Computed example of a mutant assay.
Amino acid sequence: MSSVRVECAVKASALIGEGPVWEESGQTLLFVDIAGQKIHRWDPTTNRIQSVATGDMVGFAVPRRSGGYVAGVGRSIVAVDWSTQMMTSLAEVDEDKPNNRLNDGKVDPTGRLLAGTMAKEVRPAVVERQQGSLFSVTSGLTVTKHLDEVDISNGLDWSSDHKTFFYIDSLSLTVDAFDYDSNTGHIGNRRVVYRMEEGEGLPDGMTVDVKGNLWVACYDGGRVINIDPATGVRLQTVSLPVMKTTSCCFGGRDYTDLYVTSASVGLNQSEWKHQPLAGDTFRVTGLGVKGRPSSSFSG
């Protein structure tokens, strides 16, 4: 096996770093600081970070085919014009739940956005249960609710043939799979493909590699685990120098680097002393596997 190396790539010191997306067009890494209310874009060539303030908690940001980005800010799906730093609301979700916010979101291979909600946290990972939902947004901005009574809607991705949708509701301590119809966006036949083990923490953000295996960031577990969803077997564990690992994506020119975000919110003085890199984003190399380019929202 290749020699795996973990290094700090982005000194972001995010309160809750999340949702990394590698932008193929600009060879840049897009990620958000949820509680810091910012979208960040990092250029590895110059090591420069550009940021846009969102004015409310931001759960995700993804590229948009027509230019700019689409982000989940508060309970709004918004269009982000990076050059002007202006945001325009495209759709609202959970209008009947003002204490909710959008969390993780990702675009399916056809350009449809899927994004989930959760109640605002009392403290890290402590929420009013079953307040969240999972929605999809089409190119025509039609919003459909697929799941409700979700605790913390989190990681999501698709199999290479687009027929399986992988999904994480963090407090369930499982990684689930659904049958997926990419034409209609319909999901069904929910089943568990992996159940978290003692000490692995909460399943958070997730990505899929070209072999179809899952890479799951483990919040309060200080690791990313590699899972074969066909067998439910954990293939590999990558340990990080921080406990609150939040999400991950593949990037770099050939998609062989795994970028992992982390959080610093809620750490006490002793925990800060033992993990001074909390909130930074890490690059993992030497995994011997490639990821896939991300999809852009078609709306």
Rank of each mutant, 00 (worst) to 15 (best):
G155F: 08
S2L: 14
H274E: 15
S51Y: 00
V289C: 05
I152C: 09
S247W: 00
G72A: 10
Q50N: 14
Y167T: 14
A79Q: 05
Q236P: 06
Y219W: 15
S3I: 11
G205K: 09
R65I: 02
S25V: 15
I49C: 07
Q236I: 10
C8A: 04
V137H: 00
R234H: 04
N154P: 07
L30E: 02
G36K: 04
W215N: 06
V126H: 13
C249Y: 06
G299I: 05
E121K: 06
Q236M: 00
N47F: 12
G205H: 04
V122E: 03
L102E: 01
D280P: 05
L214F: 11
V175S: 09
T261N: 10
S51I: 09
S83G: 13
V127C: 02
G105Q: 08
D151H: 13
T281Y: 11
T138Y: 04
S51W: 10
Q275C: 11
S160H: 09
L141M: 01
S295M: 11
A278D: 08
K11W: 08
S83E: 15
V70A: 00
D179Y: 03
A53Y: 13
M86R: 09
I227Y: 08
S262A: 13
L30P: 03
T164F: 02
F135P: 07
L173K: 03
K120C: 14
V224N: 04
V80R: 00
P20G: 06
N154K: 08
A14W: 12
D181A: 01
V284Y: 01
G36N: 11
G185D: 12
L235F: 03
W42N: 07
K38P: 01
D176P: 06
W82K: 10
F60G: 04
S2F: 11
Y194L: 00
R234Y: 09
S264P: 12
M196C: 15
W215Q: 04
N100G: 09
D161G: 02
V193G: 09
S76G: 13
K211P: 03
L29F: 03
C248Y: 03
T110K: 05
S239L: 11
Y180T: 03
G55Q: 14
E200S: 05
V93Q: 03
